[in-house]
Design a binder for these strands. Sequence first.
RNA 1: GCGCGGCUAGCUCAAUUGGAUAGAGCACCUGACUACGGAUCAGGAGGUUGGGGGUUCGACUCCCUCGCCGCGUGCCA
Length: 606
Amino acid sequence: MAIGKTMRLLSRQGTLLFRLPMQDWFDVAKKLESLALKAAQRANLETDVFSPDVHPADPRFGDAQINGALPYAKRLKTNPREIAQQLVDQLNQDPEITSVAELSIAGPGFINIRFNSEFFLMWLRAFTTEEDFQASASRIFAGERVVVDYGSPNTAKQMHVGHIRAIVIGEAICRLLEFCGAKVTRDNHIGDWGTPYGKLFYAYKRYLNKTALEEDPLGELERLYKLGSRLANDDEATLEECRKELVKLQLGDPDAIALWKRVNELSIDGLKEIYDLLNVHFDCFLGESFYRDQVGRVYEELQETGLAEESEGALVVFHPEHKRYAKQPFIIRKSDGASNYATTDLATMLYRQEHFKATRVIIVTDDRQKDHFEQLDLTTKKWFNQTNRSRPEFRHVMFGKIMGDDGKPIKSRSGDPIRLKDLVYESIDRAYAIVKGKNPDMAEEEHKQIATTVGISAIKYADLSPNRTSNYVFSWDKLLSFEGNTAPYLLYAAARIQSIFRKAGVSMKFDDAAATPFETDEEIALARKIMEIVGVLHSTIETLRPHLLCTYLFELAGAFSAFYNANKVIVDDAGIKARRLILCQRSLLVLKIGLSLLGIRTLDRM
RNA sequence: GCGCGGCUAGCUCAAUUGGAUAGAGCACCUGACUACGGAUCAGGAGGUUGGGGGUUCGACUCCCUCGCCGCGUGCCA
């Protein structure tokens, strides 16, 4: 049944109790807030002080709680329980709430709300498709144009573990924003300019292995860079040669530029291989080189506006109002006259505002760059204000490091960073062994497909499920485990639901008219959990913290498994069967929506 | 030195931003219908939330202080 239709609430005897516009109830917390506010008005509370403060409740107490009476009573120095009682008295006058829930007061003045079983059923029957779930979310960022800057590897080098979180978190954020109605531009701000090129070119011209370049371009380029770097380090004359190569490039020497272009093409092709494997696709690769001739405007405007000043030979920006950046400079031009990443980042901000008309800019990097982006944001705000430009809202989405068992940043046995490609393929290989062990009868081709999805999902989920701002400890056993908060557990739950429908010979779009209200504890717990997705999507988007969604999906899968284990779905009673199929179908729907927002594909069987 | 972040069960992590008896998963112990997929589920045990003080009806959360650990802190990105 579609949103917008009026649901008829029938009593057990089939009499029409009243008409309830269910679309208002999609976001239960929001609806309760508005009802509580109305009640507060009728109770003559000071409505500019009262805030409903609606939370999901511990199931022991109810389905939701309104806590606003406590802070209200504190401000007005009155008795919180009395305030709560006044609110409940008013709410109990309102058929919109009394028809779906029972209210009670507990402790110092918590108002507990417990929905009746019919309400859960009506809710689940009102919202049945991804579009239904997206309808309210898509208003959040409607009309917004967001540039999301993530990935940002250096060219001529292979990506390593240090890049995985940026890719995975960035992609999840893009998908969440799109789900919420934003027009997203995925921009990969690659490091494709600067000092490493002198060393690379020096070695490229002398030690290139053409066959290796054909077979593994990034591997060969990286080898050459390391070689050039080592030679320059050991020998002063070689270092001087490298400098000359760099100068040629910076002066626009045609041969140097041609070589630089070739290296970049090879690099981006190599990068795309892994991005494809991870199902991540960028709209543009506007790297540092793209902005190299745009730094002049930055110098001019920041000096004209008086924001930048000379200090120790460099051009810098101080922020006197800030306790730290009053003294710690934002260096936008080095004392040798060269630009640095502050310069190009400022130029990038300008381009995103002028060219993309961005209303928001999000940059995803590790947390060590926090200071830099705070200074960038402060500087950009002042700059754009003084030049009467619209100011995109900036968010630095940062994340912590991936640690090894020893509590130090993860490294390979040789001490080098682990290559991203190796990491992903090792995950797929490990998944393959597990899948094959569990399903010996399955066709080889299916083993491979499932292993690829499981392996990649497991890596992604390991990056997303811990709070992004903290470091996390990497463990193969944990991320590929089929127990606990992991991708395989969630994929398994989804696959098993599909299996029920296959077994029952029922389509996903079955006729649910016969469904009777939920009765068992497991049914009600699952229904309640499904409804929680609405609030979870809101908090995930507000904070740009995908782990909130992960935690929820894990709980949902758990609630489903508990239900599935205790309540048989395929039973003779048509009413029971229909309502349990509803729970199965909606669980699957929400799992699929949630996982796809995280950039994870689901499987029909595994 | 200054700044930022972290410190929660044996281990790995949560805690809707000040709400009720701090929750999960591993690991450990006990149990479950020859099974709509046991890759599951139910239960048990496990805590002075780094230490100390304070704010209030109420603190992992806010303030002060001390202790470790990590990161940043003028010309890398």
